[in-house]
Computed example of a mutant assay.
Amino acid sequence: MTADTTRTPQDVTPSDGASDRVLEVTDLKVHIPVRMGMRKVTVKAVDGVSFTLERGRTLGVVGESGCGKSTTARAVMRLEEPTNGSVRLLGKDITHLSGEALRSMRRHCQMVFQDPYSALNPRLTVGQIVAEPMQAQGMNRADITARVEELLDLVGLQPRHRNAFPHQFSGGQRQRIGTARALSTHPEVLILDEPVSALDVSVQAQVVNLFRDLQEQFEMGMIFISHDLSVVRHVSDDVVVMYLGQIVERGPAEAVLSTPHHPYTEALISAAPGHDDGGERRQRIVLTGEVPSPVDPPAGCRFRSRCWKATPECEQPPPLAVPEGGTHEVACFHPAL
């Protein structure tokens, strides 16, 4: 490895005696003011999300489009400003960092974005793209040059590719470039926002296996956001299921995806192509009704307006807890056990 950059006094460094917990998100809220006609309203994009991530483990985040998965990731990265709650990285609260302290924090937490075509600056060469985060962290030129070549080799590209431009590469190769950029600062946390959804099926497995190999090599904690439940099952140690800005189910990946307790998770799994449970095909669950607006979500359980199990009790907020006889946490008064 090449020499590392010198950290500033404000840098986010692990606390003495820090555990393997690299990220802790507590009651995170992102409320976005918008204008609807003449009215000013607030979109509750993320509304009380909590989870932890340990070194070397992968947390899968699943849910419908618009449920708040990407907004949660962007708030953890501080690309969106949290309205409330806290984000602790390596034991230090980063929720309100700004300026140099915020820039220094980002060396420890990096992100690979969903669209490999728009995520790369078309005016920069591959070498310049990969070098940007290291330049922002103050590394010297000689170390950056050596590190760029090392990273390109690490993600399966050639040193000669450093002088090419993004438009000269396929989608899978562009995602490898984005991955090299994210790894350039030796992050402890890597956030993957739908990293294979824009790729051909033929290259999705290659990219997913690349992430797994890199995690094993560097012992990073990873957050893997995806609609594809089969991919989430393949890469994740733990899973959270989000609906309308909140977590409705959380636990070990195999437990959540094999024995879902929440009706919404059951519906998601039943809608997945080729869904099965140990060879036994699940009956397709077709949800009725419209997804409620995040501007004015239902009181109590937010899924109750589409849930076939809803009762008057569901008008109260259900706690996220392990039910009697259950295997993991669920926010539901009528869990499937």
Rank of each mutant, 00 (worst) to 15 (best):
R141W: 08
E188V: 06
L320T: 03
C301L: 02
H161P: 11
G138Y: 06
D193W: 12
G279N: 05
G66W: 07
Q128I: 03
I94G: 03
Q173D: 03
H275T: 13
V295S: 01
V256H: 09
A3Q: 15
T13G: 09
C332S: 09
T8D: 08
L151T: 02
A101M: 04
G91E: 00
L268T: 00
G63Q: 04
R123K: 10
V207A: 02
L229A: 02
V203I: 14
T145A: 13
A45E: 02
A73M: 11
R281M: 08
L28P: 04
E54N: 14
I144W: 15
I32A: 00
E313K: 15
K69H: 14
A198F: 11
R55A: 08
A336W: 06
R160W: 10
A255F: 09
H261V: 03
G274Q: 03
N140Q: 09
V112T: 04
E254Y: 13
G85E: 01
L102K: 15
D20A: 14
G279L: 08
R233W: 07
A119P: 14
R57G: 07
E149T: 15
Q173S: 15
L90K: 00
V189G: 01
L154K: 06
T265M: 10
A101S: 08
H31S: 01
D153W: 07
L257G: 02
I223E: 00
I269L: 15
R35T: 15
I247S: 01
A164I: 03
V240P: 08
I144E: 01
V25P: 00
M1R: 10
I144S: 02
I94A: 00
E329Q: 15
K40A: 07
T125H: 07
E100D: 11
F224H: 05
P33F: 06
V30N: 01
D20S: 08
C307R: 03
G66L: 08
G17P: 06
R162T: 09
P122G: 00
V22R: 01
Q173E: 10
P33I: 05
S230L: 10
H31N: 01
A75S: 08
R284P: 05
D11R: 09
P9Q: 00
H234Q: 11
Q173C: 07
L89F: 12
Q137Y: 10
E216D: 12
A267K: 07
A18M: 13
P323N: 01
P187M: 02
T83C: 04
T95E: 00
D93A: 07
V30E: 02
V231S: 01
R302Y: 11
T259R: 12
V232W: 05
A101E: 05
M242A: 00
D237H: 14
